[in-house]
């Protein structure tokens, strides 16, 4: 469904992505792991064109989207994103955070947008926090609202950029639960994470990245129990202790 073809990205002198290719199949949960600085986040950002690739192509349902003729706004409606630091709009309540995409991007009426938003908040278990501002919510609650905001636009896939890295340990569970539920419902997901439990239990496929290239990919069992490459072995060894 999402295809990445030989994508390169430079930040100044820094060659962050060195020809990455991958395919995300419909309905699968693809987990990307790797040491920090390996280009995982940049890759994710390329997929919804928050970062435009310097070389190579991004295809969504076979359509080349890093094309000047295609509006990046349209692409981002197809592919939702959840950020490490939530990035909820500080001046809006939880409900308004979900509503704004529906009214301003999808141009729904405010009545309809609010109904959808309330449903999405209920889905992430926060119906009672609709009127709270982000600053009044815990990190876990904020991240769940952010997931609701992404889902409300009814995207074809959702990208998760280290969604639990900024959370206190006690809040990680609730966010992972929501993500697991989502995966079980058949949502197409690309998840960059350090939560190896989630990768093993929920991921359909795991992809190991280092130094801007895809080193190895396979099922969770293949990557975690029978890694082929040395770098993968070292990384998995460190992570799983």
């Amino acid at each position: 469904m999402i295809s990445v073809r030989n994508v390169h990205k430079w930040f100044g002198e820094l060659h962050v992505l060195k020809g990455v290719s991958l395919d995300v199949k419909k309905g699968e949960a693809l987990v990307i792991i790797g040491p920090s600085g390996s280009g995982k986040s940049t890759l994710l950002r390329c997929m919804n064109l928050l970062v435009s690739p310097d070389e190579g192509d991004i295809l969504i349902d076979g359509v080349r989207v890093n094309d000047p003729k295609i509006r990046p706004e349209w692409v981002r409606q197809q592919v939702g994103m959840v950020f490490q630091s939530f990035n909820l709009f500080t001046h809006l309540t939880a409900l308004q955070n979900v509503v704004i995409g529906l009214t301003k991007v999808k141009r729904l009426s405010s009545t309809e947008a609010e109904r959808i938003a309330r449903f999405e908040l209920e889905r992430v278990g926060l119906a009672d926090k609709a009127d709270a501002y982000p600053a009044q919510l815990s990190g876990g609650q904020q991240q769940r609202v952010a997931i609701g905001r992404a889902l409300a636009l009814n995207p074809k896939a959702v990208l998760f950029d280290e969604p639990t890295s900024a959370l206190d340990p006690e809040y990680i569970r609730e966010v992972l639960d929501v993500m697991t539920k989502l995966a079980n419902e058949g949502m197409t997901m690309v998840v960059v994470t350090h939560e190896m439990g989630f990768a093993q239990n929920v991921g359909d496929r795991v992809l190991f990245m280092a130094d801007g290239i895809v080193v190895e990919e396979g099922t969770p069992e293949e990557i975690f129990e029978r890694p082929q490459q040395d770098r993968t072995k070292t990384f998995v060894g460190t992570i799983l202790g």
């Binding site: 919804n48 928050l50 990046p72 706004e73 349209w74 692409v75 981002r76 409606q77 939702g80 994103m81 950020f83 630091s85 939530f86 990035n87 909820l88 709009f89 500080t90 704004i100 995409g101 301003k104 991007v105 952010a146 905001r149 992404a150 636009l153």
Partner: peptide, 17 residues
């Protein structure tokens, strides 16, 4: 913060919006 504009971009908002 840049995260705010990034999040807005991520849900497909235009520059003006």
């Amino acid at each position: 913060p840049t995260g705010q504009t990034e999040a807005a971009e991520a849900i497909g908002m235009s520059k003006a919006t």
